[in-house]
Design a protein around this nucleic acid. Structure first.
Length: 304
DNA sequence: AAATCGGGGTT
DNA sequence: AACCCAGATTT
């Protein structure tokens, strides 16, 4: 399990070896990291927070255009707080999981109400905001406030699972042991910790990818436990994942697409979205209303 | 710990 | 057709 170099090496030599690994990854990022707009100098903490929420389960390429438009329309938390929610949901478009858009607006309102319109510092205060969980609080702390935080996203999980544990994929669920590993791996010095978080995340996105990792380009290839083990394949997925086709999630998406397009709709036409299963349409409609993503007035349904 | 919550590009 | 993506929230 543990990497070979963990075996009884003088503390100072271990430290220097780890420092070289860290520097190699940071240097790789300086050369190969993408020029993403939310990484630019002078981008506000709010803009970075928005990017992080949009990036929750949505790939970078799809976030880019939405983020640009969003920040142009609502550059400050107060702007989003005052926006019509229907417009917010339209601008969110097809980023997926539209509850994130709702929570982001609630987040903006909480920032205005409780923090004077400024993104608060500190992971505890950040986590208290709607839609901000462990990852996003750490990411905002690191990338917006340049603080030392244990950032663990899907990319970092994969890089650590492979390079340190020698495993092809991380576990399904995020464990305390995994958090401890990420904590141990984080450089002690603040500036280096920020660079490390950014660099490892990018390494996972560009090189140590889920499908076809490009190990030949990896700054960690010489000391990667997974490479050393001969890059063993992952076990076959024990459970087939739930298909998307035919799920409530898909139907909710279809209904939201209609509401974004038309602003409102009579209820009856929505049942044409699945003539085979009106109960499903009904169920999804009710759940959207419960979630605050749609409102009913009379025989019509519209965006909130 | 597991389920639920979109949507689309890649393989 | 399956897999994956800068996760959060609820149960």
């Amino acid at each position: 399990m543990a990497p070979a170099r963990a075996v009884v090496v003088p503390a100072d030599r271990t430290a220097r070896a780890e420092d070289r690994e860290i520097d190699a990854v940071i240097a790789w990022f300086a050369d190969e990291g993408r020029d993403l707009p939310w990484r630019h100098e002078g981008v506000s903490a709010w803009a970075i927070l928005v990017s992080e929420v949009m990036l929750q389960q949505t790939p970078v390429v799809r976030v880019l255009p939405r983020w640009r438009e969003w920040m142009e329309r609502w550059p400050e938390p107060a702007d989003l707080a005052d926006a019509p929610t229907a417009e917010v949901l339209r601008c969110w478009d097809r980023l997926g999981y539209p509850r994130r858009a709702l929570r982001l607006q609630e987040c903006a309102r909480a920032i205005v109400r409780e923090h004077g319109g400024r993104v608060p510092h500190g992971e505890e205060a950040l986590r208290a905001l709607p839609g901000i969980g462990e990852y996003t609080a750490a990411a905002v702390t690191a990338f917006a406030h340049h603080g030392r935080a244990v950032v663990v996203d899907t990319n970092i999980r994969r890089v650590l699972a492979r390079s340190v544990l020698g495993r092809p994929v991380p576990d399904r669920s995020y464990s305390a042991a995994e958090r401890a590993l990420a904590t141990r791996s984080l450089p002690a010095e603040q500036g280096r910790s920020v660079a490390w978080n950014q660099a490892v995340m990018e390494l996972g996105a560009l090189v140590c990818t889920a499908r076809s990792p490009r190990c030949e380009l990896c700054p960690l290839k010489a000391q990667c436990a997974w490479v050393a083990a001969g890059r063993p394949a992952a076990e076959e997925g024990s459970r087939p994942r739930q298909a998307f086709e035919g799920t409530d999630r898909q139907m909710r998406g279809k209904i939201m697409a209609v509401l974004r397009q038309d602003g409102s709709s009579r209820e009856a036409p929505l049942f044409a979205l699945d003539a085979e299963d009106p109960a499903r349409v009904r169920r999804c409609l009710e759940s959207l209303i419960t979630d605050g993503l749609a409102v009913r007035n009379g025989a019509e349904v519209r965006l909130p």
